[in-house]
Design a binder for these strands. Structure first.
Lengths: 347, 347
DNA sequence: GTTTCACCTGACATCGCTTTCCAACGGTTG
DNA sequence: CAACCGTTGGAAAGCGATGTCAGGTGAAAC
């Protein structure tokens, strides 16, 4: 009942009055429903425009049960990958008249807080986009909500999703290094707490090991580092490696495959401080093709990030508009090598 | 009346029935309103929990006129500055039970499309956070909406906002270079289309010129470059400068003040390709203290980005909760020099 | 044993829109 | 000319919560 300011608060009845028709007709006319003559529709449209009328989303949602909004869940939004996906998704849903609600998990993203407060989503959104969200195994609370869900960057059995095949990513990166002649290749990226979803890091590692085996190389556990996805941990891992090698190049691997561009950037920074020249002394490859990757001349396995957001959004809207659940579909996008200057033949 | 799935759709009446009270009492009890005995409140709370009841936001919004949501308008969200501000703001508003709606302007952000479609905001949000949004002069459509507005990064007369004093920023950056002994200092950052709000670039430039004058140096127009805020344009400006200097260091300024860290990163990248050593041949300073700035060892004038988001959000909530318009307040935050390794004494 | 009063609680109207129904209308058809 | 029919528009019943107001209860006061 809050009478905010002096605004006259124009509703559908005011438009109806001005147009000389009933509220029902206004509703039909404005939403393009059939059963309204062209002349009436024009009258109504004009009246609505004159009054600057916009239907109250709350009222519409109340009667229809549809909110015309989708929620985006992500561990963070200030990381490039997530904000880029969101941007792509927003582009699609806003064109279809949907709003975008933000649900960054922040500190709750970890495995220590696996219980997402689904109550906040309840009756708020028509669908949910889950970006690398640790959802636990189904049947999960989010699914009990019976809200359509599409994931990006990881998949849940029985749920639609968009992702790149991370095993393939790992293989592609490793193969590139192998083809350059590297044999001692480190992997920096094991995810200690799987904060970013189920298998991104594990899959890339698996692809890495697979590629090594295919080349007849036994993966060396001492060359595998736990970093997570943060820049700082890439830096730390690099320093650890250097210490362990007795600060001598000879004992170092000749190449490093970083689980993400951000980790690779950390590695690059550490290398520079350590006086290790990339790529002469050490080759480094990342994953993502981060917006800033080219500034580091970073060779990377690129993935179409914004497009993943767009495609996932489109799939979600399809699910939302169908009343019956749609058969889950997983779209795998192709990663591609982006060859810049941080990789070369071994020293 | 879409009967989604088989979900029993529990509402306030179901809770009331289970608790053996009326819906009105449930509403009061659950929202912590006075006039409910402790025992009743406990009963209701238990019943609600047992049923997993959550009040429908649409229904609540319809009666109260409050949506419990705030909208965030920003030119982009995949740029670090914006996503970091949003993250800070979300942290605050979500704690107060507000949702966050995203309104990236994207292609509409430019001066060519100054008319923001305010209709989308109508009755959707209780307040708006405008991040460097080109709003035109008041009275503006957004204000006719009578929705509380708080800006970040720029101010509008008569509207509350949070920002750093960009003139001060420009002075601080320039002073730092002057103190190192530089006399020929370029400014890269004039904003051709003011896409990012009114005066960010212009103010920093003004601070730059002021500092030079204070040091007895007449600003040299040929050392001022138009770049906007994109990385690529920093790179281009650097290349232009180098060409104009006849590809000789002697004719180059000894230092560059970049309007943002991203522009500075572009400059750094160009310099490396050009064979110009930073900081030996050239000092570079940026603004923002971008999350990735330390990877470039970039000296910069830092601003508390997430905190600006938090503070702005808090102010916005204050405005929202008061029915009467609050006196506009502008909070200026202190920038601070973050000294790293891209600046040193002139060659 | 009333009366008083504070305190709780319930009934009901209401928010603005959508969505059945159903009535009116003008024009065909037999 | 009456019966019929497709088209168009209106009346009214919700949707699920909140806010108002009146009533009912108990304890305290007389």
């Amino acid at each position: 009942m809050a009478e905010h300011g002096l605004a006259p608060m124009i509703g559908i009845v005011q438009v109806a009055a001005l147009a000389g028709v009933s509220p029902a007709t206004v509703s039909r006319a404005l939403r393009g429903l059939p059963g309204v003559s062209v002349t009436t529709r024009a009258t109504v449209t004009d009246a609505a425009a004159a009054l600057g009328y916009v239907a109250s989303p709350s009222a519409a949602a109340l009667t229809t049960g549809r909110t015309s909004a989708i929620g985006v869940m992500a561990p963070w939004i200030s990381r490039w990958f997530f904000s880029a996906v969101i941007e792509g998704a927003h582009e699609v849903v806003s064109n279809e008249g949907y709003d975008t609600l933000l649900y960054p998990l922040g500190a709750n993203a970890g495995p220590t807080a696996p219980v997402i407060d689904t109550r906040a989503l309840h009756k708020r959104v028509d669908g949910i986009l889950g970006l690398n969200v640790p959802l636990g195994l189904p049947p999960h609370a989010l699914q009990n909500l019976r809200i359509p869900l599409v994931t990006v960057g990881s998949t849940i059995p029985g749920v639609s999703g968009v992702l790149v095949d991370d095993i393939e990513v790992g293989q592609a990166a490793t193969k590139h290094l192998l083809e350059l002649g590297h044999r001692a290749i480190a992997f920096m990226g094991t995810d200690p707490d799987q904060m970013y979803g189920f298998t991104v890091a594990a899959d890339r590692q698996q692809g890495y090991e697979q590629a090594l085996l295919d080349a007849g190389i036994i993966p060396d556990p001492s060359l595998i580092f736990e970093t997570g996805f943060a820049i700082a941990s890439g830096e730390q891992a690099m320093n650890r490696l250097w210490e362990r090698a007795g600060r001598t190049l000879a004992a170092m691997p000749t190449a490093i495959f970083a689980v993400s561009d951000e980790v690779a950037m950390g590695i690059l920074h550490a290398a520079r401080n350590l006086g290790i020249d990339v790529p002469t002394d050490l080759s480094v490859i990342g994953v993502d093709n981060h917006d800033l990757a080219y500034l580091f001349d970073l060779t990377t396995i690129g993935q179409p990030v914004r497009n993943q957001g767009r495609i996932a959004a489109r799939m979600l809207l399809d699910h939302v508009r169908l009343h019956e659940p749609l058969a889950p579909k997983v779209v795998r996008m192709d990663p591609g090598l982006v060859c810049r200057k941080t990789t070369t033949t071994p020293r």
